[in-house]
Design a protein around this nucleic acid. Sequence first.
DNA 1: CGCTTGCTTGGAGTGCACTCCAAGTTCGTA
DNA 2: TACGAACTTGGAGTGCACTCCAAGCAAGCG
Lengths: 159, 159
Amino acid sequence: MTVTETETADEAVEPDVCTTGEAPHPQPDGRDRYTISEVAAICGLSAHTLRWYERIGLMPHVDRSHTGQRRFTNRDLDWLGLVGKLRLTGMPVADMVRYAELVREGDHTFPERHQLLVTTREDVRHRIAELQETLAVLDFKIDTYAAARRLPERPERTA
Amino acid sequence: MTVTETETADEAVEPDVCTTGEAPHPQPDGRDRYTISEVAAICGLSAHTLRWYERIGLMPHVDRSHTGQRRFTNRDLDWLGLVGKLRLTGMPVADMVRYAELVREGDHTFPERHQLLVTTREDVRHRIAELQETLAVLDFKIDTYAAARRLPERPERTA
DNA sequence: CGCTTGCTTGGAGTGCACTCCAAGTTCGTA
DNA sequence: TACGAACTTGGAGTGCACTCCAAGCAAGCG
């Protein structure tokens, strides 16, 4: 419910906006135009990767300065935040590009976007469950090693 | 504590055994020699991948029939179960090979193995936390789309 | 015995997600 | 204005984890 409070609330609901429900990107000094290396530093991707994301359509066409250099906006940063989260889920880049295309296509793709996110959410829940099973296995094996350390076959308790 | 009951309990603690704390592999009819395609069907890896695992040292040298064909044991199946779990964590194959080497090297590698598993466990906990954050973001965005559906910009409630 | 299916090997090929290169342009500061 | 750092592009290269191929051997069946 901590919705962006700095936003001009002229639109009530706009799901294609890049917001993730977290505070919008920290705007160090109210700026809204970042160079590629600044963005790389902020979001942890390389400049190479950012250019590549744009080339393949995973970024919604970044604005340019009058000399042709990229100038990323806070909105771009928010989008990259969402992309980063989706990437953590293991979603293939191609699927994220698909989502980006749907956003560009306009409001009539809301249902498909909704469906894509719901499916992804199920995947994430499944992965969490898998990881928790794995955690149990690791706990078991770590206990086993700890037990072996307490009861060594050749006692070396003094060493 | 549900340790293998079919095992000749001549060793009290044996961490390098492949057991994962779960029941040992279901032995359909008490067999202990499986062909490569049977193992592929059981553990969901391709025969190609199983051969590759052996080649790179991720399998502890599979036994052969008198004509040179692979014959996997229940113990191999259990090891593959552990490998599968570790793979789910995103652990690189090279690290799993390292673990397999430690197992082959003998008991004196217990501490390093223990450390490797503890580190992996921390990674897994971290990934679970990341995924849960991602889940929160997905919930937020899905809610947003659901709200957009309830309040469409061009009302089409009858359609 | 012949046929089909499955297994063996080393090595080559694939798909993904970057990651880097070369050659040229622009920015910021001394 | 000069200079090094940062930026631009298309295209090529890298590393990982498989995935497949070709040529040949082996097993079961009519």
